[in-house]
């Protein structure tokens, strides 16, 4: 299975970096917000249920009397999560779920499927989910919708900004200034960037140039003259420019400037070394993120009406039980039917 660069750069690496700014361990053990439909889904499960949570992130779901197996590709996030029972974490890919077949009573896939970059991969993810469910097992799938009450996406495949100055710090959301007639959600949607994912099915008949040409094929739709934004800001510091930035940071925060300077000075002495650039880049990124002026971009494929239903229905073992639109998301409850190949047609 090919790991596409867009997912690596605009999904996995971004979540890793964002993990650096979440203070999970110090956060108060307040119960995180769980969408009512998910809470209901979990509460209705039989006692002793085994639930696979695909793309669990910080693993905020619990089921009394059962067990949750949380799967995520982001190691930086998983190691920060406090282990307080109820959830066991596994570092694994949703396209290669590491569980025995037909072993789970239920599966959750909340706000994850929209990060896969092609239809083939999204379908694979649902097939994997179907494989781990036992017959009669249920799945709840949430994806971000193309149809938004507060704005219009420029395309179904988009890079969506995540502004760090709007993320929670110490478990509290900082005050966000609301512009007149513009919500945070509207601004995020409006500043998202349309991209074109070229069908990667061609990857199954390998050509040596495929990978190197991928970046060119993954391009901006709206402003073809512009380059893609980096997943996170980067710098190529020279002694001059870094000291300029440093001066700027000192103005913002003398403490931070001091800390940064101590990082930079020994670094400058060995600037020829390529590693220094990495170190400086990380230090500067952290500093700027602390100032919360950094924007991260994440890749999304936002789903049109009926698309998720069609995708799930295309898996022979899955049957859609209900489909809803909820706060800008499409949500589907599905059930695993016995393997079609074992059914006798009368």
């Amino acid at each position: 299975m090919n790991m596409l660069r867009v997912e690596e750069e605009y999904v996995q690496q971004v979540y890793s970096r964002l993990a650096a700014y979440s203070n999970t361990k110090e956060a108060k053990p307040t119960s995180p917000r769980v969408w009512p439909r998910i809470r209901q889904f979990l509460e209705e499960l039989n006692k002793g249920s085994v639930v696979v949570d695909i793309g669990c992130g910080e693993g905020k779901y619990r089921i009394p009397g059962g067990v949750i197996l949380g799967v995520d590709t982001c190691a930086d996030l998983l190691v920060k999560v406090p282990r307080n029972g109820g959830v066991d974490y596994i570092l694994a890919d949703g396209l290669e779920l590491p569980f025995r077949r037909a072993s789970a009573d239920a599966a959750l896939c909340v706000s994850v499927l929209h990060h896969f970059s092609t239809e083939l991969r999204r379908r694979d993810a649902m097939q994997q989910l179907a494989n781990v469910l036992r017959p009669g097992g249920k799945a709840l799938v949430y994806v971000w919708a193309f149809e938004q009450p507060n704005g219009t996406f420029p395309s179904q495949d988009v890079l969506v900004p995540w502004n760090l100055h709007e993320t929670a710090l110490n478990g509290r959301l900082p005050k966000v200034k609301f512009h007149k007639e513009s919500t945070k959600e509207q601004r995020i949607i409006q500043s998202s960037i349309a991209v074109e994912i070229v069908n990667d099915e061609a990857a199954s008949c390998p050509s040596p140039s495929w990978f190197s040409s991928f970046v060119e094929r993954f391009r901006l739709l709206r402003k073809p003259s512009l380059d893609l934004p980096p997943a996170a800001p980067s710098f190529n510091p020279t002694p001059r420019s870094s000291s300029t930035i440093l001066t700027g940071i000192r103005k913002w925060s003398p403490m931070l400037g001091k800390r940064l300077a101590s990082l930079l000075i020994p670094v400058e002495e060995q600037l020829a070394d390529e590693m220094t650039q990495d170190i400086m880049q990380t230090a500067l990124q952290e500093a700027l993120a602390t100032l919360r002026k950094v924007t991260f971009y994440r890749f999304y494929h936002v789903f049109k009406k009926g698309e998720l239903e069609a995708l799930i229905s295309s898996i022979p073992q899955l049957k859609v039980l209900s489909s809803q639109f909820e706060h800008g998301n499409w949500c589907i409850l599905a059930e695993k039917v016995p393997d079609a190949s074992k059914l006798r047609v009368i």
């Binding site: 066991d88 290669e96 590491p98 025995r100 789970a104």
Partner: peptide, 22 residues
């Protein structure tokens, strides 16, 4: 990792591996 979790894990996703269990 609890042994309960281990009981569900499999490496069947590897190439040329049939059940990968236990």
């Amino acid at each position: 990792m609890k042994l309960l979790t281990h009981n569900f894990l499999s490496s069947r996703f590897l190439k040329n591996v049939a059940t990968g269990y236990p």
